[in-house]
Amino acid sequence: MTFDAIAGQTLSGISVGMVLFLIAAGLSIIFGTLKVLNLAHGSIFMLGGFLCYGFTSSFVSLPGVFWWTLLAAPLIVALVGGLIEIFLLRRIYTQEMLYQYILTFGLILIIGETCKFIWGVGYHSVGIPWPFGGNVSLWGLSFPVYNLFLIGCGFTVFIGLVALMRYTGLGRIIRAVTYHREMASALGINVPKVYTGVFMLGCWLGGLAGTLMPPMSVVALGSDMAVIIECFIIVVIGGLGSLPGAFVGAIILGLLNAFGIYIIPKLAVAFGFMLMIVILIIRPWGLMGKPE
Protein backbone atom coordinates (compact mmCIF):
# COMPACT_ATOMS: atom_id res chain seq x y z
CA MET A 1 0.00 0.00 0.00
CA THR A 2 1.54 3.27 -1.09
CA PHE A 3 1.60 6.47 0.85
CA ASP A 4 -0.75 8.02 -1.70
CA ALA A 5 -3.25 5.25 -1.20
CA ILE A 6 -3.07 5.51 2.58
CA ALA A 7 -3.63 9.25 2.46
CA GLY A 8 -6.47 8.87 -0.03
CA GLN A 9 -8.28 6.18 1.93
CA THR A 10 -7.79 8.11 5.17
CA LEU A 11 -9.41 11.17 3.68
CA SER A 12 -12.32 9.34 2.13
CA GLY A 13 -12.75 7.31 5.34
CA ILE A 14 -12.93 10.43 7.46
CA SER A 15 -15.31 12.17 5.09
CA VAL A 16 -17.72 9.23 5.05
CA GLY A 17 -17.22 9.04 8.79
CA MET A 18 -18.34 12.66 9.05
CA VAL A 19 -21.59 11.90 7.26
CA LEU A 20 -22.09 8.89 9.53
CA PHE A 21 -21.39 11.14 12.49
CA LEU A 22 -24.22 13.48 11.51
CA ILE A 23 -26.65 10.55 11.42
CA ALA A 24 -25.39 8.92 14.60
CA ALA A 25 -25.43 12.29 16.37
CA GLY A 26 -29.11 12.68 15.49
CA LEU A 27 -29.87 9.18 16.74
CA SER A 28 -27.89 9.84 19.90
CA ILE A 29 -29.45 13.22 20.69
CA ILE A 30 -32.94 11.81 20.25
CA PHE A 31 -32.18 8.84 22.48
CA GLY A 32 -30.44 11.00 25.05
CA THR A 33 -33.39 13.28 25.59
CA LEU A 34 -36.49 11.30 24.57
CA LYS A 35 -35.15 7.85 25.53
CA VAL A 36 -36.54 6.60 22.22
CA LEU A 37 -34.42 4.46 19.92
CA ASN A 38 -35.47 5.77 16.53
CA LEU A 39 -35.10 2.71 14.33
CA ALA A 40 -36.38 4.80 11.43
CA HIS A 41 -33.41 7.15 11.61
CA GLY A 42 -31.83 5.48 8.59
CA SER A 43 -35.06 6.16 6.72
CA ILE A 44 -34.85 9.82 7.73
CA PHE A 45 -31.37 9.88 6.18
CA MET A 46 -32.65 8.16 3.04
CA LEU A 47 -35.52 10.63 2.74
CA GLY A 48 -32.97 13.45 2.78
CA GLY A 49 -31.09 11.72 -0.03
CA PHE A 50 -34.19 11.33 -2.17
CA LEU A 51 -35.20 14.93 -1.58
CA CYS A 52 -31.72 15.99 -2.65
CA TYR A 53 -32.07 14.00 -5.86
CA GLY A 54 -35.66 15.17 -6.37
CA PHE A 55 -34.86 18.87 -6.05
CA THR A 56 -31.60 18.89 -7.97
CA SER A 57 -33.12 16.92 -10.84
CA SER A 58 -36.35 18.96 -10.99
CA PHE A 59 -34.78 22.41 -10.88
CA VAL A 60 -31.66 21.77 -12.93
CA SER A 61 -31.67 25.27 -14.39
CA LEU A 62 -31.75 27.04 -11.03
CA PRO A 63 -28.30 28.40 -10.28
CA GLY A 64 -26.73 26.88 -7.18
CA VAL A 65 -29.60 24.41 -6.91
CA PHE A 66 -27.64 22.09 -4.64
CA TRP A 67 -27.13 24.82 -2.08
CA TRP A 68 -30.82 25.71 -2.04
CA THR A 69 -31.50 22.02 -1.61
CA LEU A 70 -29.02 21.81 1.23
CA LEU A 71 -31.03 24.52 2.92
CA ALA A 72 -34.48 23.15 2.19
CA ALA A 73 -34.22 19.36 2.27
CA PRO A 74 -33.00 18.96 5.89
CA LEU A 75 -35.69 21.42 6.99
CA ILE A 76 -38.39 19.40 5.24
CA VAL A 77 -37.04 16.23 6.84
CA ALA A 78 -37.07 17.98 10.22
CA LEU A 79 -40.71 18.96 9.64
CA VAL A 80 -41.58 15.36 8.83
CA GLY A 81 -39.82 14.41 12.07
CA GLY A 82 -41.85 17.01 13.95
CA LEU A 83 -45.09 15.54 12.60
CA ILE A 84 -43.97 12.04 13.58
CA GLU A 85 -43.17 13.20 17.11
CA ILE A 86 -46.35 15.19 17.63
CA PHE A 87 -48.86 12.80 16.08
CA LEU A 88 -47.33 9.40 16.77
CA LEU A 89 -44.54 9.18 19.34
CA ARG A 90 -46.05 11.63 21.80
CA ARG A 91 -49.04 9.37 22.27
CA ILE A 92 -47.01 6.44 23.56
CA TYR A 93 -44.28 7.85 25.80
CA THR A 94 -46.04 6.45 28.84
CA GLN A 95 -46.25 3.00 27.29
CA GLU A 96 -43.63 0.30 27.42
CA MET A 97 -40.47 0.72 25.37
CA LEU A 98 -41.53 -2.23 23.24
CA TYR A 99 -44.29 -0.19 21.59
CA GLN A 100 -42.11 2.84 20.88
CA TYR A 101 -39.52 0.69 19.18
CA ILE A 102 -42.09 -1.18 17.12
CA LEU A 103 -43.70 2.09 16.07
CA THR A 104 -40.43 3.44 14.72
CA PHE A 105 -39.88 0.05 13.07
CA GLY A 106 -43.21 0.50 11.29
CA LEU A 107 -42.10 3.94 10.12
CA ILE A 108 -39.18 2.33 8.27
CA LEU A 109 -41.75 0.61 6.06
CA ILE A 110 -43.91 3.69 5.57
CA ILE A 111 -41.03 6.04 4.70
CA GLY A 112 -39.31 3.43 2.51
CA GLU A 113 -42.45 2.67 0.53
CA THR A 114 -43.26 6.36 0.15
CA CYS A 115 -39.82 6.96 -1.36
CA LYS A 116 -40.34 3.96 -3.63
CA PHE A 117 -43.71 5.33 -4.71
CA ILE A 118 -42.38 8.80 -5.53
CA TRP A 119 -38.91 8.09 -6.89
CA GLY A 120 -39.03 4.46 -8.01
CA VAL A 121 -36.58 1.64 -7.42
CA GLY A 122 -33.63 2.77 -9.53
CA TYR A 123 -30.28 4.22 -8.48
CA HIS A 124 -30.03 7.99 -8.73
CA SER A 125 -26.98 10.18 -8.73
CA VAL A 126 -26.37 13.83 -7.97
CA GLY A 127 -23.47 15.76 -9.45
CA ILE A 128 -20.83 17.36 -7.25
CA PRO A 129 -21.97 20.94 -6.73
CA TRP A 130 -20.05 24.01 -7.82
CA PRO A 131 -17.48 25.07 -6.57
CA PHE A 132 -16.40 21.79 -4.98
CA GLY A 133 -15.80 19.71 -8.10
CA GLY A 134 -12.39 18.38 -9.00
CA ASN A 135 -9.35 17.80 -6.90
CA VAL A 136 -7.02 19.90 -4.89
CA SER A 137 -3.40 19.06 -4.29
CA LEU A 138 -2.05 19.12 -0.76
CA TRP A 139 1.49 18.13 0.18
CA GLY A 140 1.94 16.81 -3.30
CA LEU A 141 -1.16 14.58 -3.09
CA SER A 142 -4.44 15.13 -4.82
CA PHE A 143 -7.71 15.07 -2.89
CA PRO A 144 -11.34 15.46 -4.02
CA VAL A 145 -12.48 18.87 -2.82
CA TYR A 146 -15.96 17.66 -1.94
CA ASN A 147 -14.50 15.26 0.64
CA LEU A 148 -12.70 18.13 2.31
CA PHE A 149 -15.97 20.05 2.32
CA LEU A 150 -17.72 17.13 4.04
CA ILE A 151 -15.03 16.98 6.70
CA GLY A 152 -15.46 20.69 7.25
CA CYS A 153 -19.22 20.22 7.64
CA GLY A 154 -18.77 17.39 10.12
CA PHE A 155 -16.37 19.35 12.31
CA THR A 156 -18.54 22.46 12.18
CA VAL A 157 -21.64 20.56 13.20
CA PHE A 158 -19.78 18.71 15.95
CA ILE A 159 -18.40 21.91 17.44
CA GLY A 160 -21.74 23.64 16.93
CA LEU A 161 -23.65 20.91 18.72
CA VAL A 162 -21.24 20.74 21.63
CA ALA A 163 -21.37 24.52 21.96
CA LEU A 164 -25.16 24.48 21.71
CA MET A 165 -25.45 21.92 24.48
CA ARG A 166 -22.84 23.45 26.75
CA TYR A 167 -23.04 27.18 26.40
CA THR A 168 -26.50 28.23 25.31
CA GLY A 169 -29.72 28.59 27.25
CA LEU A 170 -31.38 26.19 24.86
CA GLY A 171 -28.67 23.61 25.56
CA ARG A 172 -29.18 24.03 29.30
CA ILE A 173 -32.89 23.44 28.87
CA ILE A 174 -32.27 20.32 26.81
CA ARG A 175 -29.80 19.01 29.39
CA ALA A 176 -32.25 19.74 32.21
CA VAL A 177 -34.95 17.73 30.44
CA THR A 178 -32.46 14.96 29.68
CA TYR A 179 -31.30 14.53 33.26
CA HIS A 180 -34.49 15.14 35.15
CA ARG A 181 -37.68 15.35 33.23
CA GLU A 182 -40.04 15.86 36.16
CA MET A 183 -37.84 18.50 37.75
CA ALA A 184 -37.54 20.38 34.46
CA SER A 185 -41.27 20.26 34.08
CA ALA A 186 -41.73 21.57 37.61
CA LEU A 187 -39.37 24.45 36.82
CA GLY A 188 -41.72 25.55 34.07
CA ILE A 189 -39.92 24.08 31.09
CA ASN A 190 -42.35 22.98 28.39
CA VAL A 191 -41.13 19.41 28.15
CA PRO A 192 -43.30 18.30 25.19
CA LYS A 193 -42.02 21.28 23.20
CA VAL A 194 -38.41 20.36 24.02
CA TYR A 195 -39.12 16.78 22.94
CA THR A 196 -40.52 17.92 19.62
CA GLY A 197 -37.60 20.31 19.14
CA VAL A 198 -34.97 17.71 19.93
CA PHE A 199 -36.60 15.14 17.70
CA MET A 200 -36.69 17.68 14.89
CA LEU A 201 -33.05 18.59 15.49
CA GLY A 202 -32.09 14.91 15.33
CA CYS A 203 -34.04 14.48 12.10
CA TRP A 204 -32.53 17.67 10.68
CA LEU A 205 -29.08 16.16 11.24
CA GLY A 206 -30.18 12.94 9.54
CA GLY A 207 -31.64 14.94 6.65
CA LEU A 208 -28.48 17.03 6.38
CA ALA A 209 -26.40 13.87 6.11
CA GLY A 210 -28.83 12.53 3.55
CA THR A 211 -28.51 15.69 1.44
CA LEU A 212 -24.72 15.81 1.66
CA MET A 213 -24.15 12.16 0.79
CA PRO A 214 -25.53 11.80 -2.80
CA PRO A 215 -22.74 13.72 -4.64
CA MET A 216 -20.19 11.17 -3.45
CA SER A 217 -22.46 8.14 -3.54
CA VAL A 218 -25.83 7.16 -4.98
CA VAL A 219 -29.40 7.53 -3.81
CA ALA A 220 -31.13 4.18 -3.56
CA LEU A 221 -33.68 2.24 -1.60
CA GLY A 222 -32.14 0.02 1.03
CA SER A 223 -29.68 2.66 2.22
CA ASP A 224 -32.01 3.17 5.21
CA MET A 225 -31.16 -0.21 6.72
CA ALA A 226 -27.50 -0.11 5.70
CA VAL A 227 -27.07 3.23 7.42
CA ILE A 228 -28.98 2.41 10.60
CA ILE A 229 -26.79 -0.64 11.13
CA GLU A 230 -23.66 1.52 10.68
CA CYS A 231 -25.11 3.89 13.26
CA PHE A 232 -25.64 1.02 15.66
CA ILE A 233 -22.03 -0.01 15.28
CA ILE A 234 -21.01 3.57 16.00
CA VAL A 235 -23.08 3.83 19.17
CA VAL A 236 -21.82 0.45 20.38
CA ILE A 237 -18.29 1.85 19.97
CA GLY A 238 -18.96 5.31 21.32
CA GLY A 239 -21.96 4.96 23.59
CA LEU A 240 -25.55 6.00 22.89
CA GLY A 241 -26.35 9.54 23.98
CA SER A 242 -22.77 10.83 23.81
CA LEU A 243 -21.77 13.33 21.09
CA PRO A 244 -17.99 12.84 21.40
CA GLY A 245 -18.67 9.10 21.41
CA ALA A 246 -20.58 9.36 18.15
CA PHE A 247 -17.83 11.53 16.67
CA VAL A 248 -15.01 9.16 17.53
CA GLY A 249 -17.04 6.07 16.67
CA ALA A 250 -18.00 7.47 13.28
CA ILE A 251 -14.41 8.34 12.35
CA ILE A 252 -13.19 4.88 13.41
CA LEU A 253 -15.92 3.15 11.42
CA GLY A 254 -15.38 5.40 8.39
CA LEU A 255 -11.65 4.63 8.36
CA LEU A 256 -12.22 0.95 8.93
CA ASN A 257 -14.64 0.78 5.99
CA ALA A 258 -12.33 2.75 3.71
CA PHE A 259 -9.30 0.59 4.41
CA GLY A 260 -11.36 -2.58 4.53
CA ILE A 261 -12.70 -2.01 1.05
CA TYR A 262 -9.20 -1.26 -0.18
CA ILE A 263 -7.55 -4.33 1.34
CA ILE A 264 -10.22 -7.03 1.10
CA PRO A 265 -13.13 -5.64 -0.96
CA LYS A 266 -15.18 -8.80 -0.58
CA LEU A 267 -15.20 -8.61 3.19
CA ALA A 268 -15.55 -4.85 3.48
CA VAL A 269 -18.90 -4.98 5.28
CA ALA A 270 -17.57 -7.51 7.76
CA PHE A 271 -15.00 -5.16 9.30
CA GLY A 272 -17.54 -2.95 11.01
CA PHE A 273 -19.36 -5.96 12.40
CA MET A 274 -16.12 -7.47 13.63
CA LEU A 275 -15.11 -4.25 15.33
CA MET A 276 -18.48 -4.14 17.07
CA ILE A 277 -18.06 -7.71 18.29
CA VAL A 278 -14.52 -7.06 19.52
CA ILE A 279 -15.68 -3.97 21.41
CA LEU A 280 -18.49 -5.96 23.00
CA ILE A 281 -15.98 -8.55 24.19
CA ILE A 282 -13.20 -6.35 25.51
CA ARG A 283 -15.06 -3.18 26.46
CA PRO A 284 -18.78 -3.91 26.54
CA TRP A 285 -19.61 -0.41 27.78
CA GLY A 286 -18.01 1.20 24.72
CA LEU A 287 -14.79 3.15 24.21
CA MET A 288 -16.01 6.37 25.78
CA GLY A 289 -18.49 4.97 28.28
CA LYS A 290 -18.09 3.81 31.85
CA PRO A 291 -18.92 0.35 33.22
CA GLU A 292 -22.60 0.18 34.13
Binding site: L103, F105, G106, L109, G112, E113
Partner: peptide, 9 residues
Protein backbone atom coordinates in the same frame (compact mmCIF):
# COMPACT_ATOMS: atom_id res chain seq x y z
CA UNK B 1 -45.31 -2.91 2.81
CA UNK B 2 -46.73 0.57 3.10
CA UNK B 3 -49.99 -0.81 4.42
CA UNK B 4 -48.06 -3.09 6.72
CA UNK B 5 -46.38 -0.01 8.19
CA UNK B 6 -49.74 1.69 8.59
CA UNK B 7 -51.12 -1.43 10.28
CA UNK B 8 -48.20 -1.40 12.74
CA UNK B 9 -48.75 2.25 13.60
Amino acid sequence: MFFLGVIIV
